[in-house]
Simulated scan of single mutants.
Amino acid sequence: MSLTWLETEGGPFIVVPRTALPHWSGTEGDYDRACEVMDFVGVLALPGGAEALVLGDEPLSTTYLPEYRVLVRWCYAESEDGVADIIRAGIPIAEWEEGPALSTTGELVMFDAAYFGTEVGTLTGSAALELAAGRYRVDSASIEPNDLTSFRVHRFVELA
């Protein structure tokens, strides 16, 4: 299975409900707030009650595995061969750290936080995260099957 990896221009990724994309102001203000997130993930409030998830820490290549509702961040590995299998094998045995809660109106869009939400699909690449409307906790873990391979993963756990 080939994975599609997204990159930023050096800043964090932001994950915003599709319905709230017009509210993300990129470098006009929201980007600075996103850069203040020092944890692996953080949540920012947006106008109209929407929330955005920030992937903090480092600007790592990132992809989404929808069957597990997991964002995968590439720390290091020798090649892309078998990455999906490594992640699938690591998810059940990972030591998950509970993260912040995020509310969404449905589908989320991940993109470089420096861009305006209105530029998604035209000036910047993005990935759609198919989630039902609701509230999710975003847990984090490391998957490191050997000394040469490390991925940071974030899963969306549906809350009642």
Rank of each mutant, 00 (worst) to 15 (best):
L65H: 11
A34F: 01
V157F: 04
L131E: 08
T4I: 08
P12G: 01
S2L: 09
E7D: 12
L53K: 07
E51C: 01
R155S: 09
P92A: 05
E58A: 09
T105Q: 13
A128F: 02
F156H: 09
D85L: 07
V43A: 07
Y64P: 09
A84D: 14
A114P: 07
V157I: 02
L53D: 06
D112K: 12
G82I: 01
V15H: 00
A101S: 12
E97G: 08
H154K: 05
D30F: 07
D30M: 13
L53M: 01
A84C: 11
T104K: 03
E97Q: 13
D39K: 10
V16K: 02
D112R: 12
M110N: 01
E7I: 03
S79F: 01
H23C: 09
E9F: 01
S142W: 11
Y31R: 08
D39E: 09
F40Q: 15
V153H: 03
W74T: 06
G90V: 08
C75E: 13
A141P: 13
R137N: 07
E80Y: 08
G121L: 09
P22F: 00
F151V: 01
E58I: 00
M38V: 12
P100S: 10
R69M: 04
L71C: 06
T124K: 14
V43Y: 02
Y68S: 15
A101F: 02
L123A: 15
D57S: 10
V37R: 00
G10A: 05
G48M: 03
L21G: 05
L108S: 08
E58M: 05
Y136K: 06
D57K: 14
N146T: 10
S103R: 14
L71M: 11
L71G: 05
A127K: 15
L55W: 05
G90M: 02
L102N: 06
Y76F: 13
Y31H: 14
E98P: 14
A94P: 13
P100N: 08
E58S: 11
P17F: 01
E98L: 06
S2T: 12
Y115I: 12
L21P: 06
E98T: 14
R33W: 00
G11D: 05
G49M: 10
V120G: 00
P92T: 12
W96L: 10
A52L: 05
N146V: 02
A45H: 13
V41E: 00
G11N: 09
I91D: 14
A89P: 10
D139T: 10
E28N: 11
R69T: 10
S2V: 04
L102Y: 09
E9P: 00
E58L: 04
G82S: 09
V41Q: 02
A133K: 04
R135H: 05
L6C: 11
A84S: 14
E158K: 14
D85Q: 15
A20Y: 01
G99Y: 04
T122S: 13
M1V: 08
D81I: 03
T118M: 03
G10M: 01
A94L: 03
Y31S: 07
V41R: 06
V70P: 01
P145D: 08
F156L: 10
L159E: 09
N146G: 04
E80G: 14
I93G: 10
A113N: 11
L129F: 03
E98D: 14
S61V: 07
F151A: 06
L3K: 11
E130D: 13
